[in-house]
């Protein structure tokens, strides 16, 4: 794993409220690097978020809205943020009360670093 990737991952994982962070190969839908919380299936998340990102990217293009920056899911228990840096994407899973703004910032930062 390259220094850039591990550094990016490290920063993301350290944001308060972040449960898991992953760098995913968007083409293959497989994890490149991850720091996972307990009971989290990295492979499943990688496959599904890559697929979701790809589809949403397509929707954004079709709607003539340009390039997709990030995707945010809100669930009962927390948030999932997916940010694109093709061919890689950044996935962050965070608690409900985590600071979303900070997470978004760090995710964008990771995307820049990985570019």
């Amino acid at each position: 794993m390259s220094d850039v990737v591990s550094a990016a991952l490290s920063r993301l994982s350290q944001v308060p409220g972040v449960r898991s962070a992953m760098i995913v190969d968007a083409e293959a839908g497989v994890p490149v690097a991850s720091e996972l919380g307990a009971g989290v299936s990295g492979e499943a998340i990688a496959a599904l978020t890559a697929s979701l990102f790809q589809r949403t990217e397509q929707a954004a293009r079709d709607a003539a809205l340009g390039r997709l920056g990030s995707l945010q899911l809100e669930t009962d228990e927390g948030h999932v943020v997916v940010a694109g840096s093709r061919p890689l994407i950044v996935v962050v899973i965070a608690d409900r009360d985590a600071q979303l703004g900070l997470i978004r910032l760090e995710a964008d930062r990771a995307v820049e670093a990985l570019r």
Binding site: A26, E27, G29, V30, E43, A44, A46, L48, A50
Partner: peptide, 9 residues
């Protein structure tokens, strides 16, 4: 329209 990860999952 799919990926290796998705198929494997």
């Amino acid at each position: 329209s799919s990926t290796l990860g998705l198929v494997e999952l």
